[in-house]
Nucleic acid binder design. Sequence first.
RNA 1: GGAGAAAUGGCAGAGCGGUUGAAUGCACCGGUCUUGAAAACCGGCAUACCGAGAGGUAUCGGGGGUUCGAAUCCCUCUUUCUCCGCCA
Length: 422
Amino acid sequence: MLEITRLRNDKDEVIEQLRKRGVDFTKEVALVLSVDAQWRAAKTELETIQAESNGLSKEIGKLFQAGDTAAANAAKEKTAALKSQEQTLKSQVNQLEQELREALYQIPNVPVAEVKEGKSEADNETVFEAGPKRTFSFTPKAHWDLAQQYDLIDFELGVKVTGAGFPFYKGKGAKLQRGLINFFLDEAEKAGYQEHIAPLVVNEASGYGTGQLPDKEGQMYHIGADDLYLIPTAEVPLTNIYRDVILPNESFSIRLCGYTPCFRREAGSYGKDVRGLNRLHQFDKVEIVRIEHPNNAKAALDEMVAHVKQLLEKLQLQYRILRLCGGDTGFASAITYDFEVYSAAQEKWLEVSSVSLFETFQSNRLMLRYRGEDKKTHLCHTLNGSALALPRIVAALLENHQTENGITLPEAIVPYVGFAEI
RNA sequence: GGAGAAAUGGCAGAGCGGUUGAAUGCACCGGUCUUGAAAACCGGCAUACCGAGAGGUAUCGGGGGUUCGAAUCCCUCUUUCUCCGCCA
């Protein structure tokens, strides 16, 4: 949620920058500002009346204490009119407040200067590309074939027990998962991120805090009996640790990481993209999260990008980094870098990580603040990134490191998985 | 799952219908004293919104109600604690 003060002070600039998302938000911004003005006017009026009736009540109290019951009862008569006025104004203010919030929810985050205008993924800029693409002297197999051939992953079994998108990992396939999780966690810890094991279900307030609700309600699994949501990413529980928190100025930087399974309904996905490990309803991910002082947020973003880069290098995967264009940048994000690895077998790029800076967009909803040098509270900046999501990394490892009669694992993870060859 | 008790500022802990945004202690910040520190003493110390400011309003777990007036009474939800039952 954008800060209302930013819209009040800087509306033209906000609209201008939002244009980079390929959408004109003039109307939405105007609506927010008009509701805001009405809200403020109604609130001022309400408070005047409240002040009046508070004063009257105090007087009545004094009169009763002085024993002047007659005068007190006379004063009471006057309060009736005030009371009904107060009630109508109160409901008006409440309604305007809700309208304001809803209007504000319609406006996405403002992209930062480096983000280029664009409508879709076709307009994303490649800012870095590593190494030559792997070539093969034989026809490489897709990971779903390799997984079956070496008995690593069983998709059919998952369909039987649960449904599509919930595979079983078996034997070396399961060990590879476990090893990768530990590898990613250790790397994150080395970079200063404190490990957390988080709840896998969250309440409604947390869903709102990080912005999954109300926009993406249909994407989360909802447990009706207890009104809880399965997490779509560790970002939700990890960032919500800091909901309604005021940090001392010297707290920064805060770095958390955590491995969790992630659950996504992926409503509306179909076709080729969902084959094999490309898109699952349940998958494993190590997430890194940072809470930063606004002055340090950009540097933090660069560090996170460097961290993910280094992971992909250790995995010896060919990858590229994209700076997403305005239209492809997520609703809450001010700037996002996507990491993609190239799968020679599928002949396409697979997104394996997404690193985003939200500036105050999340902290504004979360009420996550710090106390500045000026002794006042200010909103923190939040960031997060996958480091990394497992399924597509596994897909890429299998596909890119296959030989004619096996799969050779990169050196860095051998100690973690316990074998070098599949 | 059943029965009871409780939820107040950073923490501890009073208040239980009227000038209480809230005693007191601790913590914290500033000052006096001291060569320095400690101690002692003095002062300050919740958050948010509206307002140029003066000031106003709201908030004592959340929501609703009674009342001219609620931290205080009632209802409801949530959480915590104790006891019983069940269970990894």
